[in-house]
Amino acid sequence: MSTLVLVLITGAGLGALYFLVASGLSLIYGLMHVLNFAHGAFLTLGAFIGWEVARRLDTATWSTFFVSILVGGAVGAAFAALTELALIRPLYERHIEQVLVTVGLAFAAVALYQGIWGSDPIYIDSPPWMLQTTDVLGALVPNTYWVLMLAATALLASLVIFLRFTRYGTIIRAGVENRWMVTALGIDVRRAFTVVFAIGGSAAGVGGVLAGHYTGYVSAYLGSSLLIFAFIITVIGGLGSLTGAAIASVLVAVLQQFANYYLGGTGDIIVVVLLAVVLLARPAGLLGRAS
């Protein structure tokens, strides 16, 4: 019983981390039809810069932790907005070239990070509470998972509010449905592209800092390994569907944890099987629109 609780809660926490990455991918794809392979690079930079800031402050306190989260988010947003302006925008409407340029940037960024911070993991400090556990029905849940869940819930809530109640949010929802009609109402839809990149990048940057505390280290490969699962999640949830991404994040992570505990560490294989099953049964994903 306590193992089951542990698997469920850690699954939800890992899902929360996945969602921080997948939400941006999903928004970007939904509006721009670009699979952004550079998303992991945003995450990794957020993690490194967040750590660089933290180690110059008082490392193991909450205030340092929050500052590094803010810095990670800002760095992710800035890197993503720059990527959109400098690399994606000049290739307007050329989707294959846009995807290729994000692949190139992903490789280049990892090489750059290795050059600056080396190839070995850098172990980081967390506020002491995050390293402790909380007893839930006999299961000792590491507190990091609560932080992850809180962050993802806050992100989901702010995204929903942003999309529903702001003008840019309305433009983005309209653009996901019919982009040319948005321009035919006199709106420069490209500005919304930069905005979704910035939002996705900031979620990834925050995700990077949190991923560091989750794994206990930062490394040049942090983003790439999470990105693979995030892609699978966006496809399972339905490309372009934020709710789909949220549901799929938890589904994938819980299933992964289950398989890891009960089926001898086969979590990653199970995820690929789930992907295949969903693609066969519902090619557009759980909440995707058939096109």
Partner: peptide
């Protein structure tokens, strides 16, 4: 070409 998931009010405001 109305935005089908947006409300009438949102279609107009946009």
């Amino acid at each position: 070409e109305v935005f089908s998931k947006l409300t009438v009010a949102e279609n107009l405001t946009l």
